[in-house]
Design a protein around this nucleic acid. Structure first.
Ligand code: ATP
Ligand code: ATP
Lengths: 495, 495
DNA sequence: GGGTTTTT
DNA sequence: GGGTTTTT
């Protein structure tokens, strides 16, 4: 059964929608975004680094394309929609409009939940990760165990009761397995509408399956890998639409090259365009260009180099671990570092969900603007000789003193080991996984250890123009598209 | 520069060739092959297991196709040829005729050398590995170091001086990197014909790039992976030809399915044909069906189970190691096992090149037919309480007592550690890599840990009919064709 | 060969 | 996530 993508040609006459489109331009919430960006732009430390906020000008002057308006129209009618398209076609941009529309015209503000597969991507929408919203932990248990877990969690149950519209961005990194599990939870948490797909929730999903695939750990070969392989996928949407106009880049040759790379084609002739972006001894990359790496090991190395090069006084936080082996050792596998080194002016990323409303979630980036003494905290004393906590100004403008937080290793329901650490990592460089969704004026990436499908495409498609691209370790053999994805886009879109 | 495959339409009137074709049917050497097979067929231990010899009937009754004859014709004229085509189209079969022709009509017998990428494949042609022929060790040094090594090795230099025609089978597992290095050595070892491609050697290469790719260890991204990516590839051949008629299978539906799998297509409908080959509780697989696994760990496990199930008295050989760490530990990474357990009737594979003329090379398989006391050998005493050496009847009919052999770990030119062990492994089960090239009446394979491109195709395309196929762990997502290979066959063959 | 994310 | 071959 093939469901074809629709290219809607509807009369654009929906009153509430047009009202919304006008309203949006001058809304207070929008002004706030501008204000927040203003804060960020004036940030004295790293004005050009990764940020969860897009620049204000674009939002002000942007005119929606016909396709983008058509999606808004369907959303305003309460339809469930899958929005796809190449990187930079404005899927996330459109989602922001959709979220405003949903909150203002379709549902109540607190009935709309905004999520994404990674913290960074969620942050860009002022949302949270899908895992965090759903209350499923790592989501690795089977559907009934997960449901039980949600039911025991009051806040999560409350969200599932409340939710009327659910937005999921960067869907390519969500597995079909997980997508089906979450649909199951949705139905079960809506007892009045059980039997209806997603329990009647309006679903807005966005992403590009040619970008990074989900990480599959326990592969038995028959696993539902991509979300479009979920049993509920086709039933989930009234409309699956592909945005076709690329906004991120304007150079039409570069756009065409990216289109080919996206589909896994390796045209030697076209790839010559990248020659002038390849690093050599002659090229001098400005030191403040954001860096992307396939592997976290390289991300960490680069970040520590940048830290040392700042030449400021370094504050060290040694993780405080409890518990015995083998669990104690597992603490080192987690995201919280054994030793966190930061300093005034360091770019940092929050790695815990602190306050969703305030946008202080895993993935939020900001700058260390000071340190704050706390002689009361015993754990801080253990972790840091100076007994000081970092104060961070996040790119949203919000400032916050970051306290130690904890991570646990459990076996059954028992906590077997626990780590306490400041929930920050350095963020001058990030992994290519974390950069998916970003728009960058300039970037430097070392692709010598690129792996899997879509990675080269994601890295290269972040940058607005070839002038801003500094690349090393590239080879055409690293351009890879997944056969299932090619088939999905052929079948569903008939390109 | 694209060189297209030629489909030759030549008058088949070459006298010497026709003479050869007639001659071949009744040649003494051919009778010997029949005799050898006869020996094997009467072998009382495992008449249906892996064998380096194909069954005699086929060779007797085989009629060459037009394409196969065309290749012979070109070879008879001294041309260099690349023969490709799906598994079972008779590439190796044709090579046997070619070798006879080359030795009898084109060159002298001792000027023709027959090789393949793996020991097992080489063995099927009474040849040796390409590495062993070339005298390049593992072939990992750069071209000049390898040349130096060849020059210091009298036997290897002698072979390179002598060789007028070089046959290489199963080329898909030879990297482009290595192919270029060996071409370089060929030129350098033929001082009179330096500057000529391959130093003027007539080159006969065969293989299917949709089968297993080379193993690339030190990837810098720009590596010449497949042999067709070698700089010298196109220049190496007067003719590149694709055999199209499949002989190994006769069921046309199965043949079509294999064609699709080969190219990486996953047609759910067509794959239903495999349903009845999937193992379940109801299926009872005869215990003497040859077994294939992706991983050597599973190969070893199965082999040890089979050994225990034979219920015979087991003879143990513990490897005798010398040297200090870290080198001593590296001995365990090699092919020679820490402990070899065998018994009377065990299927075994030779893992050292003992005597190329006699076909006693890495990859030769046979059966343990007895044990032979040797109280003189000190190393045997250390390795085996009973102080007995196994006597093996190889499938060629040849019988031999297998002595301990040695493996070395060197650093620079110094031997740092050494292992002594009997150069045998059990061979009821083999890895899918080692099975490439085989034709099997029946096989059982567990594909749950299949990986990379071509592996599923190689495993499934070994068997003559679906009746003989017992499969588990299969999933369509494991069907994979390499994009570069697809491009190569599109560009060169224009299918 | 090798390695990415998701939680309280 | 994971793993295959090649030598004296
Ligand atoms: N209609 C529009 N008019 C002007 N600019 C737009 C429009 N739509 C999107 N943009 C701009 O294009 C850039 C890329 O948009 P966005 O990040 O939403 O793309 P995307 O499709 O989500 O990309 P990705 O798949 O990489 O996440 C942003 O700077 C955004 O502001
Ligand atoms: N012309 C022929 N007539 C009859 N039988 C043939 C002919 N050519 C090949 N065969 C038989 O077909 C089977 C497969 O042949 P062979 O192993 O040479 O194929 P191949 O192309 O080398 O396969 P692979 O790529 O899997 O190594 C063998 O049993 C062989 O004897």
């Amino acid at each position: 059964m093939m469901m074809r993508f629709l290219r809607l040609v509807l009369p654009s006459r929906l009153l509430s929608l047009n009202r919304f489109l006008g309203f949006n331009k001058f809304s207070t919430s929008h002004s706030q975004i501008i204000k927040k960006n203003h804060n960020y732009r004036n940030c004295s430390f790293h004005p050009r680094y990764f940020s969860n906020k897009s620049s204000s000008e674009q939002l002000e002057t942007a005119k929606l394309t016909k396709q983008q308006k058509q999606v808004l129209e369907e959303v305003s009618k309460g339809k469930s929609v899958f929005i796809t398209g190449s990187g930079g076609t404005g899927k996330t941009f459109l989602l922001k409009q959709i979220v405003n529309l949903l909150k203002q015209e379709v549902h109540k503000p607190d009935e709309v939940f905004v999520t994404a597969s990674t913290g960074v991507a969620a942050c860009a929408l002022n949302g949270q990760t899908l895992h965090s919203f759903a209350g499923i932990g790592l989501g690795e248990d089977d559907e009934d165990e997960l449901l039980g877990r949600v039911c025991k969690n009051k806040l999560a149950s409350q969200r599932w009761k409340q939710v009327k519209a659910l937005v999921i961005d960067e869907i390519s990194m969500i597995s079909g397995e997980l997508f089906d599990k979450i649909e199951y939870i949705a139905q079960m948490c809506k007892p009045k509408r059980r039997g209806e797909i997603w329990g009647g929730i309006q679903l807005i999903v966005s992403g590009d399956f040619f970008q990074l695939p989900p990480i599959i750990k326990y592969s038995n070969g028959e696993v539902k890998e991509f979300a479009f392989e979920a049993e509920c996928w086709n039933e989930s949407f009234d409309l699956q639409i592909e945005l076709t106009r690329v906004f991120r880049q304007s150079d039409s040759q570069f756009i065409e090259l990216l289109q080919w790379i996206r589909k896994g084609y390796r045209d030697a002739n076209m790839l010559k365009l990248l020659d002038k972006c390849c690093l050599n001894e002659l090229v001098n990359v400005p030191s403040d260009v954001p860096r992307l790496f396939p592997r976290n090991e390289d991300v960490k190395r680069l970040n520590n180099e940048r830290l040392k090069n700042l030449g400021k006084e370094i504050v060290s936080y040694r993780a405080v671990d409890r518990g015995v082996n083998p669990w104690r050792n597992q603490l080192q596998q987690g995201i919280a570092p054994d030793v966190l080194e930061i300093c005034l002016g360091a770019r940092v990323m929050l790695i815990k969900n602190k306050d969703v409303e305030a946008g202080l979630v895993n993935g939020a980036v900001g700058t260390v603007i000071g340190f704050d003494r706390d002689y009361a905290s015993k754990v801080l004393k253990k972790m840091c000789a100076e007994r000081i906590r970092p104060k961070v100004r996040f790119d949203s403008g919000l400032e916050m003193v970051i306290e130690p937080d904890t991570w646990e290793v459990t076996e059954g329901n028992e906590v077997q080991a626990q780590r306490a650490q400041i929930p920050l990592i350095l963020a001058w460089a990030v992994s290519i996984h974390k950069c998916q969704g970003m728009t960058l004026d300039r970037l430097q990436t070392d692709l010598s250890r690129a792996f899997g499908c879509g990675m080269v495409y994601v890295a290269l498609s972040r940058v607005r123009s070839l002038d801003g691209l500094y690349m090393s370790g590239f080879s055409s053999s690293k351009i890879k598209a997944h056969p299932k994805v090619l088939q999905f886009y052929k079948g569903q879109i008939g390109s």
